[in-house]
Amino acid sequence: MTDRLDSFTRSQWIVIEDDAGIVRRAPFETLLFSIPIRVANGPDGPRIHRLDTGEALPVLRRYGYVWSALDPAPRPLFEVPEFDEAGRRFTPCGPVGVKTSALRVIENFLDLAHFPFVHPGILGTESETEVIPYRVEIRRDVDEVWAVDCGFFQPKAMAASSAGAQVEYRYRVAQPCSAVLYKTSPGRAGAFDLIGILVRPLHETACEVHAWMLMWDEESSDESLLQFQQEIFLQDRIILENQIPHLLPLSAGMEIPTRADATSIAYRRWLKNHGVIWGTCEGIPEVTA
């Protein structure tokens, strides 16, 4: 299977676990691009080895997570300067397994149009399904996909929301398997709350999704923040597992782009331009995945 691992995907830092999960679970065995790895925790921090070759893999600690890569010299990790802003509250939501391609999970995360249908009463309402036109851009300096000026009416945009609101969104694909959403903060005028997902491919059509929140919210309890986000993600999960094919089509014509909005089209094109194979339908003659 790893012959389908393209160099762009291989050179990315991939999330392994959040800091608390490392402490609780290590040592443990898991998968990274179908390769079994072992994660241990010692006095000098986490150590990660391939179980097939015994090779030690690079380890990075950042943003409350432990990251690793199959490539001994991964590309620099994306920057999220908001992590350095004092007063923000960081909440990792714990890993959730999903049986589909990591890229499908990112694509779903970027899709505004599904809110009224998949998250009715929370992130959308069936009476207001219109997505306000927005701009999609490839930021060449950081090589990321951004969608800006997205607007949407949401009945309960965040755990701290007391009423429905017109919410502004910015989406950012920072890596093939990592995306960040910037969303009008109900807790601080003019500021954005951040919600991110980091996806670790276990296999091409199975992954582990780590969602996190970085917010201006002093009111909500940890429990209500977590369960708000987990409920939303579990609504997506059942849609994702039932979406066929599980691999993401990159070539035009392989999937009628009814769901695929401008961000999704830009994301797929960006992946294709980088020669991404892993988790896509590229090189698979008959789509049966």
Binding site: D18, G21, R24, C93, G94, E223, S224, L226, Q227, Q230
Partner: peptide, 10 residues
Amino acid sequence: RPVDMYPGHA
């Protein structure tokens, strides 16, 4: 009353 069953194992 939500309990942090996951990921906190409360």
